[in-house]
């Protein structure tokens, strides 16, 4: 009988099956089962309080989205789109700008990159509470700064016209470092010969950026746009801490959280909103990915 670190020939046969079985059980338990349960809960009237009845009601929750809850759903869709567009555009812009500034291997640049990346590792809750305090119109410094600069004042997070944009800015502050790092990786893969040739042809910095840097960063842009947009479409944690969805900041994710886990939870409605969010994210994410990949090929 042959010997090996993996046992006998007979036991070795089971190793691949075991390798598949363990992650499969994990996926079935923690991935597929909760997903299927969410689909089922969305077809029920169920408060989520253990021991209370769960009544199958077909598409009743979906119907309610377009009738009694229509105004909340439409407001949530608008808030989600604003939030996603704002975060994606700003984070890509800021991340790219920072990458262009800090891509060089010079003394001290590593420290700046680390400092800019640092908010990413902070807890969303800590960041949310911190900015809520900064933006408190009675006791926070933001009000004093605004007043000294413009003479005006603002309720900040309590003003529906600016509240969602303030949360967008906080999100961008937190996560631009990540976008920057992806872009820096992309920038370092661009052959220097391309820039040398362009310089010889008389290209200035703007043309070098538009004709070389931006097109060559297409794969990094795909990754950044896709990840940022998908993350923003499901966002609720930062909003939960900063406004709890008040003042026109209730995104679909926030609406789902409030419905499923709020003061009087309704897991049926919450699960229905989770399904809506899934479809919404899959549709927008799919279109984005398709467009970005086509752009990469075209370039």
């Amino acid at each position: 009988m042959s010997t090996s670190p993996f046992g006998t020939r007979r036991t070795r046969r089971w190793i691949p099956w075991l390798s598949i079985l363990v992650p499969s059980v994990g996926w079935l338990t923690f991935g597929l089962y909760p997903s299927l349960a969410t689909v089922y809960y969305s077809l029920t009237e169920y408060s989520g309080v253990p021991g209370t009845p769960m009544n199958y009601c077909g598409l009743c929750n979906y119907r309610n989205l377009f009738t009694s809850n229509y105004s909340q759903v439409s407001d949530a869709v608008v808030a989600t789109l604003k939030y996603t567009a704002g975060v994606t555009v700003l984070q890509i812009g800021v991340g790219l700008g920072l990458a262009l500034l800090l891509q060089r291997r010079r003394f001290g640049y590593g420290l700046y990159r680390a400092l800019i990346f640092m908010p990413q590792i902070f807890s969303v809750t800590i960041v949310g509470v911190l900015f809520s305090l900064l933006l408190d119109p009675s006791s926070g410094p933001a009000e004093q700064i605004l007043h000294s600069l413009t003479g005006g004042s603002s309720a900040f997070l309590g003003d529906a016209s600016v509240s969602i944009w303030l949360i967008v800015l906080v999100n961008v502050w937190m996560f631009s470092g990540y976008t920057m790092l992806v872009y820096i990786a992309g920038l370092r893969r661009i052959p220097l010969e391309l820039y040398e040739a362009a310089s010889l042809d008389g290209c200035g910095p703007i043309r070098r950026f538009t004709k070389i840097t931006w097109p060559m960063l297409a794969p990094a842009t795909t990754v950044n746009v896709f990840l940022t947009a998908i993350g923003s479409l499901g966002e609720y944690a930062l909003i939960l801490v900063m406004t709890q969805g008040q003042y026109k900041t209730q995104t679909i994710g926030m609406f789902m959280f409030n419905s499923a886990f709020g003061v009087n939870p309704d897991l049926g409605l919450g699960s229905t909103l989770a399904m809506v969010q899934f479809v919404f994210t899959a549709a927008i994410g799919g279109v984005l990915l398709w467009r970005l990949r086509r752009r990469e090929v075209a370039l």
């Binding site: 009237e45 408060s47 009743c60 929750n61 309610n64 009694s68 809850n69 105004s71 909340q72 759903v73 407001d75 969805g245 209730q250 609406f255 409030n258 419905s259 709020g262 009087n264 309704d266 049926g268 409605l269 909103l273």
Partner: peptide, 10 residues
């Protein structure tokens, strides 16, 4: 009804 969502003016 329980499935009146958060913020519903009802």
């Amino acid at each position: 009804p329980a499935n009146v969502g958060t913020g519903n003016p009802a």
